[in-house]
């Protein structure tokens, strides 16, 4: 199974989250697929996704989130962990419309993402 990581942000937040993902020690994941643009992610999701265990999507800005919403129909088929840019009610509402299995925020330290990923990858059958 693969893990999809979408992060347009190449600065501190994106790097920090990527390190967290790469630190997960599991045999459930063969490969972490990194996508830096929404077009790249969109193209990937138009190919078979039965081999995708989970997708971690970082919306570091509101624009990132709007991009994700534009391909909502593709994203909603996946088990996703979603990182939102802020804690405004409108942002959270948009985030929930993607039906994430776990939702957190860009200003967190992502320790909980590691915990959730570990649990999910031990329970990939769902």
């Amino acid at each position: 199974m693969n893990l999809i990581f979408y992060s347009r942000d190449t600065e501190a937040i994106g790097d920090q989250l990527q390190r967290v993902i790469e630190s997960i020690e599991t045999q459930a994941i063969n490969e972490v697929e990194l996508h830096r643009t929404i077009d790249s992610l969109s193209r990937r999701l138009r190919r078979p996704t039965y081999d995708v265990a989970v997708a971690v999507l970082l919306a570091a800005t509101k624009e990132d989130l709007l991009d994700m919403l534009s391909i909502r129909d593709l994203i909603r088929n996946l088990r996703i962990i979603l990182v939102l840019p802020d804690t405004e009610d409108a942002t959270i509402a948009q985030g929930h419309s993607l039906r994430p299995r776990f939702l957190t925020y860009a200003d967190s330290n992502f320790a909980e993402v590691a915990g959730v990923l570990n649990k999910m990858l031990g329970n990939t059958e769902g």
């Binding site: 929930h96 039906r99 299995r101 776990f102 909980e112 915990g115 959730v116 649990k119 999910m120 329970n123």
Partner: peptide
């Protein structure tokens, strides 16, 4: 028109 909030109880570590 309000939130549909998913809580994946199997994915959340006990302490969270």
């Amino acid at each position: 028109d309000k939130n549909f909030v998913v809580v994946d109880c199997a994915a959340l570590p006990g302490n969270l």
